[in-house]
Amino acid sequence: MSTKLDSLLWVFVLLYSIAEISSKFEFTNIKCTSLDTNFADFEYCFLKSVNRTYKYMSLKVNLFKTPITKIKVNGALFKRFSGYRPFMYNVTVDACRFLKDTASNPVAGYLFNLFKKYSNMNHTCPYDNDLVLEKLPIDFVNQQATKVLPFPEGDYLLESNWIAYDINRAVVKVYGTIS
């Protein structure tokens, strides 16, 4: 009887250890480009590695023509297969309308939840101050990308185009890898 119980216990331990194996997301690069420096420009845009476990992303865009009352954001996810290819999501939302009801678009809501706690972009229009994403930690993004909505291993690019008054004003490209 004891050997059956021991065998069952080992199977349980093995299954539990397999379930505990998880993916890990890491930032690899960020590129912020202003397409109209008279409208907005990036004061800073960087990744910082404080130590082996604490890494974060920060950016600040200075807005020169405020208040801004009409904004669209296009977010597209790419995965690297001999170059970056579209992968799963390419969503454009009217940001002013979306921020009134973030449950209106689940995909945009998922992408927004990746950074809203660390940003001042969490209110409805108009925007009359600089936009800041401050110290978005890799651990938070890792949780979202591997536990909340798991993605397969690989290299990814999240590209966002920020469109004000129907003119593309800025592009932010965040590169990462899931291993």
Rank of each mutant, 00 (worst) to 15 (best):
T3Y: 06
L5N: 09
W10M: 15
V11Q: 04
F12W: 05
L15C: 14
Y16D: 07
Y16G: 11
I18H: 08
E20G: 05
S22V: 10
S23N: 14
K24H: 15
K24N: 14
E26S: 14
E26V: 04
F27V: 06
T28M: 00
N29L: 02
K31T: 06
T33G: 00
D36Q: 04
D36G: 03
N38F: 04
F39K: 06
D41T: 12
E43F: 05
Y44I: 07
C45P: 01
F46K: 02
L47V: 07
K48C: 06
S49F: 02
S49W: 01
V50S: 07
Y54P: 00
M57L: 15
L59D: 06
V61N: 00
L63H: 04
L63P: 00
F64C: 02
T66C: 07
T66N: 06
P67V: 10
P67T: 08
I68P: 03
N74I: 13
G75T: 11
L77I: 15
F78S: 04
F78I: 10
K79E: 08
R80K: 15
Y84H: 11
Y89Q: 03
N90E: 14
D94N: 15
R97M: 14
A103K: 14
N105K: 06
Y110E: 05
F112H: 08
L114N: 08
K117M: 13
K117I: 08
Y118I: 07
H123G: 11
T124R: 03
T124F: 04
Y127R: 06
D128H: 14
L133Y: 05
K135H: 08
L136T: 12
D139Y: 00
F140H: 13
V141S: 03
N142M: 09
N142Q: 10
Q144F: 05
A145Q: 13
K147W: 09
F151L: 15
F151Y: 14
L158W: 11
E159R: 15
E159P: 03
W162A: 06
W162L: 14
W162P: 06
I163Q: 04
I163W: 05
I163G: 07
D166R: 06
I167N: 01
V171I: 14
V171E: 05
V174D: 00
Y175D: 05
S179P: 08
S179R: 13
